[in-house]
Design a protein around this nucleic acid. Structure first.
Lengths: 209, 209
DNA sequence: ATAAGCAGTGAATCATTATTCATTTCTTGT
DNA sequence: ACAAGAAATGAATAATGATTCACTGCTTAT
């Protein structure tokens, strides 16, 4: 017995894996999943294409991992925003704002996660992702109903509507066809986010503001 | 000069073209765009694959035509619902209901039009399609604002939220992974549609009902 | 009946990339 | 230094289906 897996090797492998992940992330953040080629990723990461397959079962698997990682980051941010002070309605509003504003800050990745046409396996991940958001919102709505600051309603259904309203409102502005050509001024972004949120909060509370 | 295009020929060609369209529609209504194979369509229509290309530039082109046709049918129905009596809010509610109920009646086609991952060219058609709905709603919202039954707001933005809220709410129930397995009882469908519409109308009017 | 010209045919081609795997290179313990 | 084994390589392969095009067979006007 001559070769034995050692700590040094374990680390080196882990590093390569991380490099692959990082470069994939970069490719996706740059042109979405569809246009991210394995050969390009391998090139960027400084490994051969075959090496990718020593770390990931398949392209789809690699993408699924990226999807989950990127998603979790976003979901965590929204969860964080839901954990601040104030009544449930206020916290929800902060969370919705966080969701929308982060999407506009990284439009291509947001588009890839929310709206890019992807293969079935990734589409499944996306449903999980949307569900995760919806569940966060749902919980907050229930809290609000208990607190009395949000009227009684089907929390699950309403949370789904929230996700849909925001996603749809962002698809246009995020769409990569436009993203390169049109630059949305910050002031417009704010107005956009404000009116989305107004609609959503009214939908929830049935109260004009 | 021996051969000259005659009325009979023109008709025969038109019939073949229509058969191709019909069969494509059937395939899509059955499994979405992605799974609709040219060879299968040709087989159903009783023509050779090559013949498809005498009538349509490409697969994408054929699909785009189907997309437009199917879409126009839906948009017309919604427009019709907006043209009935009552104040703008009532008419809008009827239109939203029409949209949602028709989708649940033909779930696979609705999914293909609303949520199926498709190629860029079709995705473009889809944006047009969503815009068409949004514009109908937008017009109605403006009417409502003038009539005084809907408070002043960014009609365009609100209409986008409407489309998103409905679409997102339907994606889950329409998703073909489930469609075959779970049958949604009519009573559930009604409850679903009701709560979507409640959210939407509250979002618009800021009034509980 | 015939010839001109269009429509229809469908097997063969093409294009695109993810994936494989025989080979090479590197790491380790003795 | 060496052998045993693991990791990396990347050119070749595979798979998929849309698209083509040389050919066949109809339709028409004379």
């Amino acid at each position: 017995m001559a070769y034995r897996e050692t700590e040094k090797m374990r680390q080196r492998k882990a590093q390569a894996r991380q490099r692959i992940i990082d470069c994939t992330y970069e490719c996706v953040a740059n042109g979405g999943f569809r246009s991210a080629r394995i050969t390009r990723i391998a090139g960027l990461a400084g490994v051969a294409t075959g090496t990718i397959y020593r770390h990931f079962e398949s392209r789809e698997d690699l993408f699924a991992e990226i999807f989950r990682t990127a998603t979790q980051r976003e979901v965590d941010k929204v969860a964080e925003a839901l954990n601040t002070d104030g009544d449930a309605a206020v916290r929800l509003e902060a969370a919705l704002r966080q969701f929308a504003e982060r999407a506009m800050r990284g439009p291509m990745m947001a588009w890839a996660l929310i709206a890019e046409p992807v293969d079935p396996k990734l589409e499944e991940e996306r449903l999980v992702y949307r569900r995760a958001y919806a569940e966060l919102f749902e919980k907050a709505i229930r809290d609000g109903i208990e607190e009395g600051c949000i009227p009684d309603q089907d929390a699950r259904q309403s949370s789904t509507c929230l996700v849909g309203a925001i996603a749809e409102s962002l698809v246009g502005p995020l769409s990569p066809t436009l993203a390169g050509q049109i630059t949305i001024a910050d002031i417009d972004k704010n107005k956009l986010v404000d009116s989305i949120i107004r609609f959503c909060m009214q939908g929830l509370t049935g109260t004009r503001r």
